[in-house]
């Protein structure tokens, strides 16, 4: 069971109180983009075993969106942060690096180990 700290209302929210929003930090490719970019934006998602960034909504609580960084394999949560960011903030990256020294951030949103 996943428990995430909602940065908007400060509640330790149980997974069943949240609505998942899929992979975080996607770059939107809209009108005018190439077919390939648009296809990838719509359909291609990272599915890592390890560090992953996700969007969540505190649906049964304050109703706000936020971001979470966690490990899909161990369910370890590295931290949650505001939805209004284009990339994970430094303190989140530091927290991940501390636990997963080989980890690097890729702008596409794919985290590798």
């Amino acid at each position: 069971m996943l428990t995430l700290h909602c940065p908007c209302c400060g509640i330790q929210a149980d997974e069943t109180e949240l609505a998942p929003g899929g992979q975080a930090h996607l770059t939107r490719h809209g009108p005018g983009s190439s077919d390939e970019d648009f296809h990838d934006y719509l359909f291609t998602r990272a599915n890592p075993r390890g560090v992953h960034f996700e969007r969540w909504r505190h649906a049964a609580g304050c109703g706000k969106w936020f971001h979470a960084a966690r490990d899909t394999q161990t369910l370890e949560v590295f931290g949650t942060y505001a939805a209004q960011t284009l990339a994970p903030p430094q303190h989140i990256r530091d927290a991940i690096t501390e636990r997963r020294p080989d980890w690097t951030w890729h702008a596409s949103g794919r985290a590798t180990e």
Partner: peptide
């Protein structure tokens, strides 16, 4: 699915959550 202990939910604090299947 909320922590109802007195430390986590003191008197006077509002908790929005679900009861069974409804908010």
């Amino acid at each position: 699915p909320a922590d109802l202990s007195p430390g986590a939910l003191p008197v006077g604090e509002v908790r929005r959550t679900r009861l069974g299947q409804v908010p």
